[in-house]
């Protein structure tokens, strides 16, 4: 590990200040991703600012009926919070589908958003090529072993996926990320938080280097139990998604009133299938409609040597997730 200095911040302002003035400084949440990457030599911060003592661990109700998840709330605490479980069960499901109990006990909600791709070539510095790790060096995955890589929104520079489960549910729920920088606070809609790789895959989010996530705000949701998080993986637990789907649906008199579909494991960001959602509005809530939506959601998919299976898998997962989410709604 490369040497670094370490400090603890006890207020958001001091953390932002330290971040803005430090050179090559990074915030430390649960450390489950950052410390791993530091050991691998992928991340080399000169300064670590521990934010675990900031008063940001609370989960509180918002006036509009929404919920505010503090940035340092643990993934485990979030998943087991009564309001999360009753109002946003899909979010709880997505968190519990990720990692292991031990990791979720450490991992913070803010850190979860900023966890980095599990692309093998990014993780292992023995590979010369990785545009994300060494901009301009090339992409070893495109012609390498790319079974876990993206099929939507990829670029010739990077085909990595965002590994988070939680973020897929947050994308479907239209969450907003509240952040603070030296010039004050701003709110970033979830769909604008993560970026596509384009020709700058090293820039993964719209968060600036000197900004701190304060909270993730969930707007009031009409879906509650009419939602489902489906994750397909190589083993029953403790594996990243091959494909995952967060689906939420409101059905009225047999036809679809509103719907949300987000996918994980397919793109550089949690992927909202907006065209497919639009297609479904007003349609009968049945398998035929879901299939048509799934086809549309994957119409622009581009596959690589080892990941063509993700296209049918994603389609079938969308149909399944919508079917479960719709449940017995009339």
């Amino acid at each position: 590990m490369y040497p670094f200095s370490f400090q603890r911040a006890d207020a958001a302002d001091t953390a932002v200040d330290a971040l803005a003035h430090g050179k090559n400084a990074k915030l430390l949440g649960g450390g489950t991703n950052l410390v791993d990457l530091m050991k691998q030599g992928v991340e080399r911060p000169s300064e670590l600012i521990d934010i675990n003592r900031l008063p940001l661990a609370e989960i509180t109700e918002l006036p509009d009926g929404g919920l505010r998840l503090g940035a340092t709330a643990r993934n485990s605490d979030t998943a087991s919070h009564p309001l999360v479980r009753t109002r946003y069960p899909m979010l709880a499901q997505s968190i519990l589908a990720g990692a292991s109990a031990q990791l979720r006990n450490m991992a913070t909600d803010g850190g979860n958003l900023l966890q980095r791709t599990r692309c093998y070539y990014f993780y292992d510095t023995a590979y010369e090529q990785c545009n994300k790790r060494k901009p301009g060096s090339g992409c070893a995955a495109i012609n390498g072993y790319n079974r876990v890589h993206g099929i939507l929104g990829t670029s010739a520079e990077c085909i990595a996926t965002h590994p988070s489960d939680m973020c897929v549910a947050l994308a479907a729920l239209d969450a907003v990320v509240r952040v603070r920088g030296p010039r004050g606070e701003r709110r970033i809609p979830f769909s604008e938080f993560h970026r596509l790789p384009g020709n700058t895959p090293q820039i993964e989010t719209s968060l600036r280097a000197d900004e701190l996530i304060l909270s993730i705000d969930l707007p009031k949701s009409p879906y509650a139990e009419h939602s489902h998080y489906l994750k397909v993986r190589d083993r029953a637990s403790y594996a990243f998604a091959l494909v995952s789907v967060a689906a939420a649906i409101e059905v009225e008199h047999g036809s679809i009133r509103s719907v949300r579909i987000a996918m994980g494991g397919v793109a550089h960001k949690p992927w909202r299938a907006e065209a497919a959602e639009k297609l479904l509005i007003g349609k009968p809530a049945n398998e035929g409609s879901y299939r048509a939506a799934a086809e549309l959601a994957l119409v622009n998919a581009k596959t690589y040597e080892h990941n063509a299976f993700k296209v049918p898998m994603a389609k079938q997962s969308i149909v399944r997730a919508l079917t479960i989410a719709a449940g017995e709604q009339a």
Binding site: Y120, Y121, D124, A126, Y127, A140, N143, G144, Y145, R147
Partner: peptide
């Protein structure tokens, strides 16, 4: 899985 270019085990 072995990377077919470098021969390195990718999922190590």
């Amino acid at each position: 899985h072995i990377d077919k270019v470098t021969g390195r085990p990718v999922n190590n």
